[in-house]
Design a protein around this nucleic acid. Sequence first.
DNA 1: GGTAGATATTTTGTGCTCAAAATATTAGTA
DNA 2: TACTAATATTTTGAGCACAAAATATCTACC
Lengths: 177, 177
Amino acid sequence: MSRAPENPEIDGSESPHEESVLRSIRRITRAIDLYSRKLVSSCDLTGPQLACLRELARLGELPTTRLAAAVSLSPATVTGILDRLEQAGLLERQRPESDKRCVMVTLSAAGRDALRHAPPLLQDGFTQRFRALSAASQSQLDRALQEIVAMMEAEELDASPLLIPAEEPARSASGSS
Amino acid sequence: MSRAPENPEIDGSESPHEESVLRSIRRITRAIDLYSRKLVSSCDLTGPQLACLRELARLGELPTTRLAAAVSLSPATVTGILDRLEQAGLLERQRPESDKRCVMVTLSAAGRDALRHAPPLLQDGFTQRFRALSAASQSQLDRALQEIVAMMEAEELDASPLLIPAEEPARSASGSS
DNA sequence: GGTAGATATTTTGTGCTCAAAATATTAGTA
DNA sequence: TACTAATATTTTGAGCACAAAATATCTACC
């Protein structure tokens, strides 16, 4: 009756690493979210809120859209975050006369102060452990993540039939660890 | 080699890699979210929904809590996802006689079918590129991520020795001293 | 039997997240 | 001036995500 064996491996043929990579990413995402909630109890700021404040401090006054890009979030999302931060008095929004479509965001004194007392954006445990790594190891992890980002953000590689294994991106500086 | 932990300027002193790592993670998270939304238009399932279905298929009937663990989400979150999947007729929930606290979740025929026609959980572009890597490269990325997960999930490493700067004038927001 | 504590799930409340639509403003053009 | 298109932000609607509280059930010990 089952007309075809429907070999479940046909499209499920994922390399074990593929599953594993996804699983790791989910766990990282979750760990960050959990830490964000702990942050709230220690300094009344969530992770995304703190990230916005930090970029604001780093880049100075800037329009919503550019802030959104800086923290890798959509403008719509940032609007909500800014609402809450403004409500808390940590920043100010104003439309410049020159172009009233824009909204320039500025850190307030209170915002700068909150930032000074805020813990790091990543778990303290992670921060400690990461800093304990050799510069080479840090760099290696950093590069690995960037590689994943690049593969992730690269869209669809067209209709290109991908069969070209071509060559390894050959990482030259493999040794120093 | 081991850089002595000089008193690191207390708060500003993040290694450049630290910033970069966080930025990469944010971008990865975002890329996954964006793909999840594209998924909806192609198969009416979001990423988390698809992830739940897949685990369900992989592990068979199982209680909510175990499913939550399998997808690295909290039970509360999974409840909402299950609501929608059940509504769509892709799975069934029932409380076994033996223990009516539990809720056993089972894939329905429609669920199994939807799964067969669903695209991969990661961007197609990523999947293609990742598969094009050598086994060694895949493994390397996989390991790097797992290392980060481990550092991320390791809590606080307490007062553990190892690299304590001895004094660390902890002004960390531990309330008013 | 009855009551306390443990276990499993759902509900509640808040925030993050996005696309798409709505709004407001500016610039270009007839 | 009026009309159109482009730009910048906010609103809307839906889903994800969690902790904490609420609910229901089971187990253990009296």
